[in-house]
Write a protein that binds this DNA or RNA. Structure first.
Lengths: 155, 155
DNA sequence: TAAGATTGAGTCTTCAATCTTC
DNA sequence: GAAGATTGAAGACTCAATCTTA
């Protein structure tokens, strides 16, 4: 009944949590200070630029960011009010809404990307050897895959 | 000027973010469903049980959880209202407030711990080989240490 | 009836200002 | 004046209910 986790694995878990909190917190502050952009907004802009047609449905955005749909609605409300994205109705399915980068949104993303990438490099990736990076990718992919299997069973 | 991050390292970073979001989200739901306890509350109870005298000052709690002090105040408000912790004034420094586990809080922690540890084992540590766990601990410790050096310079 | 998206109410967080004690 | 803690106002998220279209 008592789940046993050895000290080495527990250290890995606690280190994982600490790094997430500290590194992401730092990246948020750098982006806010230097480009005045919340990290959540950056992630939305990036998803839109990487999308096949340069646009996404509201629920695709929600699923990608692991947000509820209402949270996605309100996040896009704010980003749209700032003029960085535009909504447009879907022709095919008139229940649907597309979100698209505006020119201003693209310009903002171009301004923010170097800052954020520099932060990721400085605070995370530059501390990894090639071998360590490979181990991390492998392990993270494995953990994600196992969780996906599990959730599909449940759902 | 353009920060270059090779594909392997970027995969490590993206995997890291994905795992955090999915695993922590899952652990939150399991704790809420099975013990009706928010993960934030669990972390506070655990910190208190691990504290030297079984109690912590408000600002120690805030610093440990990387929370602002006002967030800590309100979090403790809620946990205290539920009867899981108690506040008491400090004798030595009368500006200070101590937070301490109540018997009910300790009982709740004992009920929650197996559920949470089982979750960590199931969704994270069980997917690591001994070598992978060692690499993770090492890397996470190094990244945290570098960030601490950096922030001390700035502050 | 179900799916896509939004809205209202409630929760939790942060920022800035405040109050008390050092 | 500075540190410890709290409070008011506002931002951002979730749940449940609602509206529209399929």
């Amino acid at each position: 009944m008592r789940p046993e986790i050895d000290a080495g694995r527990m250290a890995a878990w606690r280190g994982f949590l600490t790094v997430y909190a500290r590194v992401v917190g730092r990246l948020e502050r750098e982006l806010a200070d230097e480009v005045d952009l919340p990290l959540t907004w950056y992630e939305v802009l990036l998803l839109l630029r990487e999308a096949p047609d340069g646009r996404l449905r509201m629920h695709e955005l929600a699923d990608s960011r692991l947000l509820t749909r209402s949270a996605a609605t309100r996040l896009v409300d704010r980003i749209e009010a700032a003029g960085l994205v535009t909504r447009s109705a879907s022709e095919a399915d008139r229940r649907g809404t597309f979100v698209e980068l505006s020119p201003k949104g693209l310009a903002t993303l171009r301004r923010a990307a170097p800052v954020h990438l520099r932060g990721i490099a400085t605070h995370f990736t530059s501390h990894l050897s090639d071998e360590e990076a490979a181990v991390l990718s492998t392990v993270m992919a494995r953990i994600t895959a196992e969780l996906c299997v599990l959730e599909d069973q449940v759902v």
